[in-house]
């Protein structure tokens, strides 16, 4: 039921009837349901429309494979292990590259935000790397170290590093002076202030950076695998194109979407938990 409804009364005076007002919790709940229903209908319509069009006689199934064909491909690729091998190849690259890049970003970013001279040294480098899309490094990396596993991981290291270092750095720069001085007069050493005041304050910033970094890493990885890989989801897409297997391409796209979505949800959950203390959370 909407928050208010318009009615025309018998005497012709039109106004909004002061129904029993909804509590904020009820409004929130109501909006959540609205959103879910409309969202489901919207997505369902899209799938249905595709299904109808792809099943029309005269549609080229090689270009618009019907949902049942896509599903069949997915089942086949799942049972022969191709799908899981591809997923694992991509995931393991992400785990290695992203972990190294993010760890470096947190380490260097937090030192940059805290120590003036570290900032002076690294800031120009970060500022030069930042505007360059990480994909642009791929040809250079291939020239330098070939198209092996290392080159794909290196692209991911660069991507997650560049994305995560900026919020980490800015979080550390924003630590209020009064917290630092309060810690100091409570007997904290400079090292203690760094890891018990500055880092905890910057945690929400760092997690925001990690979440964006994860999304960016996925994007970069798939692109890198399209260009140079013999395994992984990106490679699977490319193989699908080469063999004119549109179903396989669609299965690949779907898998990438689902994995990225799950990862983002995991990160969001951690992020919310770590930032629970913040004035405005969620």
């Amino acid at each position: 039921m909407p928050a208010s409804k318009v009615s025309v009364e018998a005497d012709g005076v039109s106004d909004t009837t002061p129904d029993r007002p909804m509590s904020p919790a009820e409004v929130m709940r109501f909006r959540r349901i609205e959103r879910l229903v409309i969202g489901t209908v919207s997505l369902g319509t899209l799938v249905l429309a595709y299904s109808v069009v792809s099943n029309l006689p005269g549609t080229n199934p090689a270009l618009l494979p019907p949902p049942q064909a896509i599903l069949a491909t997915a089942m086949a690729k799942f049972s022969d292990g191709t799908l899981l091998t591809a997923v694992w190849a991509s995931l393991s690259r992400i785990l290695i590259g992203y972990t190294i890049g993010t760890a470096l970003a947190i380490l260097i970013g937090s030192l940059m935000g805290w120590f003036r001279y570290v900032e002076y040294v690294f800031d120009p480098i970060v500022e030069c790397m930042r505007p360059v899309p990480p994909l642009a490094y791929i040809p250079l990396i291939i020239l330098w170290i070939g198209i092996g596993e290392e080159s794909r991981i290196l692209v991911l290291v660069i991507t997650s590093f560049v994305v995560c270092i900026v919020p980490t750095f800015s979080g550390m720069k924003q630590v209020p002076k009064v917290y630092v001085e309060a810690a100091r007069t409570l007997g904290a050493s400079e090292a203690t202030i760094f890891y018990k005041v500055a880092i905890p304050f910057a945690v929400p910033f760092i997690f925001a950076g990690m979440r964006v970094g994860m999304a960016a890493s996925w994007a970069t990885l798939v692109a890198a695998e399209l260009v140079a890989a013999q395994s992984g989801l990106g490679y699977m897409l490319q193989a699908g194109r080469r063999f004119f297997d549109t179903s396989l391409v669609m299965v690949g796209i779907f898998c990438i979407g689902v994995l990225a979505f799950i990862m983002d949800r995991i990160f969001r959950t951690i992020q919310v938990r770590m930032s629970r203390w913040e004035e405005v959370s969620k």
Partner: peptide
């Protein structure tokens, strides 16, 4: 020598 500031110095993350 403990100090209490005019600003809110309580650590919000603790």
């Amino acid at each position: 020598r403990g100090m209490v500031f005019q600003q809110d110095a309580v650590f919000p993350w603790l």
